[in-house]
């Protein structure tokens, strides 16, 4: 009786483990799940393999949509798209499968900076040009990729710093900073750029800086702590909109008015952030443009016609104040 029960149980457990294993495999193979044959540009279309980081934020969703909308069949492309679910091994696997399929171009947003050399070597040996979008890799050998297109995070932080320095730094102010995920390139660069920009202004002192992990909930929690610890905060600098929106909730809960008692400045310019900016709760946003699709399409067309492109292409990021946000909010895509 007991042994029978045990057997049933272990079989069931075995099935569950198997199922999980299969699930893991199939998500790992996500790279080629959506490919449509991909025999390397028959019928004149340029075949492109794109490996996306994941779908972790509204920004990323807009980025994905932009790329899928730009690299259409009508425009002469054959796009194989894969979602790596924030895992480097999935991305490497996807890139390998693109190489095996013999696509014409590979583009991807590296989830982390390091560890790409060997797979990029394989692409190079196969003669497939690689284009990096949004995020960089730290390979010393720059011949491994053709170009890197994306925003300049340091510049974004610097522009926020300049605006704060010019508009608010005319009298002594206390700034608290909500950093992005510790160690991520945007968090490091946006902090550096801001620090550089305010270095010359003695009126501005950054009194606290903690990580809010790029999420609303943590931005709010950390801001609540700041409000308890520091009674005289004038400005909040958040590395992305979501953390800034969380901070606004915390400021309201403390009985203060965001935009008046405490000014909030952020980076990204997603729709929720722009809405808050139009309402005056956020004071200034430097955009980090996710709409890389059209630029990527241009680059591939240029390369395909035998042209050359710059090794580093910086996307145009705009900056908005309240009036600017009200003007563009209606036809904001993301």
């Amino acid at each position: 009786m007991v042994s029978k029960m045990f057997r049933t149980r272990s079989i069931a457990a075995g099935i569950a483990v198997l199922a999980l294993g299969l699930a893991a495999c199939s998500s790992g193979d996500g790279g080629d799940a959506e490919t449509a044959g991909g025999d390397g540009g028959s019928d004149g279309a340029i075949s492109v393999g794109f490996s996306q980081v994941g779908a972790e934020s509204g920004w990323r969703a807009a980025n994905t949509k932009s790329i899928q909308d730009a690299l259409t069949e009508d425009a002469g492309f054959k796009l194989s798209f894969s979602d790596a679910q924030q895992k480097q091994e999935n991305q490497i696997q996807a890139i390998r499968s693109y190489i095996a399929q013999g696509v014409d171009y590979i583009a991807f947003s590296p989830v982390v900076e390091s560890g790409w050399d060997s797979v990029l070597e394989e692409a190079k040996d196969a003669g497939i040009p690689v284009i990096l979008t949004d995020r960089a890799v730290d390979s010393e050998d720059t011949s491994l990729y053709v170009t890197f297109i994306g925003s300049d995070f340091v510049e974004e932080g610097k522009r926020i710093g300049d605006w704060v320095s010019e508009n608010l730094g005319t009298e002594p102010i206390n700034v608290v900073e909500l950093q992005g995920t510790t160690g991520s390139a945007p968090a490091i660069d946006r902090k550096t750029g801001f620090e550089d920009a305010i270095a010359g202004n003695d009126n501005i002192s950054v009194i606290a800086s903690e990580t809010g992990n790029f999420t609303r909930a943590e931005g709010k929690t950390v801001m609540e702590g700041f409000l308890q610890a520091y009674p005289d905060i004038d400005v909040v600098y958040a590395h992305n909109d979501d953390m800034g929106l969380g901070a606004i909730e915390a400021i309201k809960a403390a009985g203060k008015v965001p935009g008046q008692d405490i000014k909030v400045v952020t980076i990204d310019g997603v729709k929720d952030g722009m809405t808050a900016l139009a309402a005056g709760e956020i004071s200034y946003i430097v955009e980090c443009n996710p709409l890389l699709g059209p630029d990527l399409a241009d680059i591939i067309k240029t390369l395909d016609e035998g042209g050359t492109v710059e090794p580093r292409i910086v996307t145009k990021d705009e900056a908005f104040d309240q009036a600017g946000a009200q003007a563009v909010l209606a036809d904001r895509q993301y």
């Binding site: 950093q179 510790t182 160690g183 606290a208 800086s209 903690e210 990580t211 929690t221 950390v222 609540e224 702590g225 700041f226 308890q228 610890a229």
Partner: peptide
């Protein structure tokens, strides 16, 4: 503990 990290100003990379 989570709250005190912010109050005490522990650097982000040591949290």
């Amino acid at each position: 503990l989570t709250f005190s990290v912010t109050i005490l100003g522990i650097p982000a990379n040591a949290v």
